[in-house]
Design a protein around this nucleic acid. Structure first.
Lengths: 327, 327
DNA sequence: TTGTATGCGTTATCAG
DNA sequence: CTGATAACGCATACAA
């Protein structure tokens, strides 16, 4: 079924059908109604692909997610999907692994779909290979990076103050008298490096020391890292780069009969449902993902419609204090 | 940049470029290499929209999600996205509210994109209005419903044995000596009705009674419903239609100083991360979402490629026993 | 108010 | 092995 079929049935030309279906003026009420009723009866919808070809606009937004297992990212993606949908855009979501090749492939897919704009979610997209992929395959498509940076004309950034957030968390615990810090970090991303720098900076400012550990990006990863901490020496404050790790940590502490926050205080990052569900509930650095996501949408829509768009927006963090830290 | 531009630079016709870029045989190695190097240097990608127009295939899959806040669904969506991506398909994810109008609109969007196939995630799509929307706008596009049913020729189903799962959970608790049951149900969906029927059936079979409560689909909803239960009388076993409710429930019980599972046993549904993180961890009915999702992909790909596809597949449940129920 | 012709970027058929 | 040419479904400038 095409507009030509509708046209034939209605006894008019295809352009007339096109005009009616696009709500353009200059059509007699009679013809309009005839065409409309035929269209509705047949359940016909204009082909967005053909329309996009003719209008040079796909009404498609590409969303790249670096790690699907991180619900932090998927939540952000959904905020965007919803907001774009309000404005008539469809979102295509691609999950790129962490290897360069599949990430570049994802960019090529977006290019072949001729997306009107794109959002890259996660700091791990701040890489050389991404920069060159964008430069070669999408040199002029507006792109917004959530918590990432790429120094290209068509790329905009909305970033979180990860460093400041972690620094504040350390300061908070220091203010409560904690002096023996540990920091558990998941995978090595630019964002996690900033968090670590925040911790290091605050620790140094107080003239303290801190043990740094790496672990897998999961509940179990946090659990095991915490066991390692407990087997190695004294600690009265543990910070985790993500809530899910902290959830594992709280569980490990509890399994060892250690009181949280009396013996050991715990801080997470993300202010996610994990921090709420855990027992005790976990104090967390909130980088305000949903606000960041909304900002991404706004920036991208500005850029797509030629309005001046904010090249680099940094959103403030917030400390959410729960049961895992002393009052 | 189009294949005509590439053709002009290479000094050949557009058809030759098309052949090379599609890896078709019958081109001299020399011309092929010339075209390939020009293409790579320019970062050109074939337009999927134009290609789709000519080939009558969009290589697009539509995914409808009923409720974005339910991570159960989004997890399923991502399994699918990943699997489809492996086969060259792009997924467009639309979140329909719960009202009929926006759901029908979502179907129309899929129709206008000419998706090659679609998956509807969630039992709430089993409705009259959905059936008629599909019949009018996508009468011949293969569609798979995850945990839903629509009696149309082009619609396939992969469903969970919700009823059996809940029946088994009640039986399990009965076997541990529990006699005073409560059941907390979130929103009214076909799936949740099946779960409730499972509970009712098992309760009746044992000649018992059960208190039924409704609540919001959230941690807080489960928390408050549980408070209501505790204020109203005696209970030694509470089942929740979703883990997130059970997580709220466990927290409420704990806040009241009630021992889980000694005083009250708790059962959830979904076997999600929530059931793992809670303390005590929560026994849960696993309807095996990731297997369901994989099955959806397989069925849809069968249907799209004309192979015989399973019209209705029911997957078995599994009880995952954790700390919230007696051993 | 409506119709005709053309272009959008690609594939496919048919010649050469 | 390669090149014209039509077709895919729609929008739009131009004519009538």
């Amino acid at each position: 079924m095409t507009i030509y079929d509708i046209a034939r049935i209605a006894g008019v030309s295809a352009s007339t059908v096109s005009r009616v279906l696009n709500g353009r003026p200059g059509i007699s009420a009679e013809t309009r109604n005839r065409i409309l009723s035929i269209t509705q009866a047949s359940g016909f919808e204009l082909s967005e692909a053909a329309r996009g070809l003719a209008k040079k606009s796909s009404m498609l937004i590409g969303i790249l997610v670096s790690d699907i297992r991180n619900q932090h990212y998927t939540n952000g993606a959904y905020v965007m999907v919803e907001e774009f949908q309000k404005n008539g855009y469809c979102s295509i979501i691609l999950n790129t692994g962490s290897d360069d090749e599949s990430r570049v492939n994802a960019v090529r897919m977006l290019a072949s779909r001729r997306v009107d704009g794109a959002v890259f979610i996660g700091s791990s997209f701040s890489s050389e290979s991404m920069a060159s992929a964008v430069a070669t395959y999408m040199p002029s498509t507006p792109i917004v990076m959530e918590n990432g940076v790429l120094t290209l004309d068509n790329v905009y950034s909305v970033i979180a103050d990860d460093e400041g957030g972690l620094r504040a968390a350390v300061d908070y615990l220091y203010g409560k008298g904690r002096r023996h810090f540990s920091y558990v970090n998941a995978n090595d991303t630019p964002s996690n490096r900033m968090k670590r720098e925040g911790v290091e900076g605050a620790i140094a400012a107080h003239g303290l020391e801190c043990r740094f550990l790496e672990c897998e990006d999961s509940f179990d990863g946090g659990y095991e890292a915490t066991n390692r901490i407990l087997s190695e020496g004294r600690t009265d404050a543990i910070l985790y780069s993500m809530d899910i790790l902290a959830a594992g940590g709280v569980r490990a502490l509890s399994d060892h009969g250690i009181s949280v926050p009396d013996d050991v205080a715990v801080f997470g990052v993300d202010n996610s449902i994990y921090s709420v569900i855990s027992r005790p509930s976990i104090s967390s650095v909130d980088t305000n993902l949903s606000r960041m996501s909304s900002q991404c949408v706004r920036t991208l829509e500005d850029a797509m419609s030629g309005r001046p768009a904010e090249k680099m927006a940094e959103l403030p963090y917030e400390l959410v204090i729960r049961e895992s830290t002393p009052r």
